[in-house]
């Protein structure tokens, strides 16, 4: 049986979703855990430096591009650099 505290914690987990050949790879972290947030920040920096674009969901079907790590974002999506086809 899962207690309420655990459920709350599961609900509060933030997600970084990185598009790749498998579809995507997901990294979950607890925004209240400073070590996990530091790791998420480092991942954000590394991916954006590599050319990935980061976007956060702002509503149903709407999103916003972000240039800086947002520890409060529930879900951050990273997609590779765009190019002409």
């Amino acid at each position: 049986m899962i207690g309420n505290g655990v459920v709350d914690k599961m609900r509060a987990m933030a997600k970084q979703i990185v598009m790749d050949a498998t579809g995507d790879t997901r990294h979950e972290f607890d925004p209240a855990d400073t070590h996990a947030v530091a790791e998420a920040f480092a991942r954000f920096e590394a991916l954006t430096r590599e050319g990935f674009t980061a976007a956060v969901r702002t509503g149903s079907g709407t999103s916003e591009l972000i240039r800086n790590f947002d520890p409060a974002a529930n879900e951050t999506l990273f997609f590779p650099r765009l190019r002409g086809g």
């Binding site: 579809g23 999506l77 590779p80 765009l82």
Partner: peptide
């Protein structure tokens, strides 16, 4: 246009 790499079509459309 689309994201670099071999991504599934759903990812491409979302990007």
């Amino acid at each position: 246009f689309g994201p670099e790499g071999e991504l599934p079509i759903g990812d491409v459309m979302l990007a």
